[in-house]
Amino acid sequence: MSEVRAVRNLRICSKDCLCLYVCPTGATDTETGQIDFSKCIGCGACSKACPSGAISMVPYQYPKQQTKDDLVIAKLNKLIQSKVEQEQMAEYIYKNSNDSIEKQLAKAIIRANRLMTEDLYREAGFMLPQSKNTKDFLKNLLQQTKDETLKKDIEKLIDLLDFNE
């Protein structure tokens, strides 16, 4: 199996369709606009031919998560804790307000805090879904939950993700 596969950024794609002509397996021609990964052999012909730069070649196996210093993680976790609390406070305000402007502002604050938390997690050791950190996190979650449907979803994720460590 090839080490890379092609992916298409639909927002950039200018529909010049050269990828359709150069693909030796027909993987680029699909009803969803995304490349058929089961057919892609990773030759890169589509990516080279694409005039809009919409097709990138990405690896199946991603590099390992960068090592993060424990103290840096601790400080970022402190911020994460604070942002999560702020999201919950804004959520309370949103749910208990009858004023449409106050609700709108609360909604924007909920979203902003969630985005900041997500970003902080990326720098606190969870950049890559395929990392050992993610795997340990999911396994831990699996042990803790008693919800059967949730268990199945977590197991499926562990199965689907191509962990690199």
Partner: peptide
Amino acid sequence: GEISALCSSLARGCEKQYLEE
């Protein structure tokens, strides 16, 4: 709340890699 945010962050990570499921 933290678990939720980490999961939504990883969801974005998968989306960026075109891992829809």
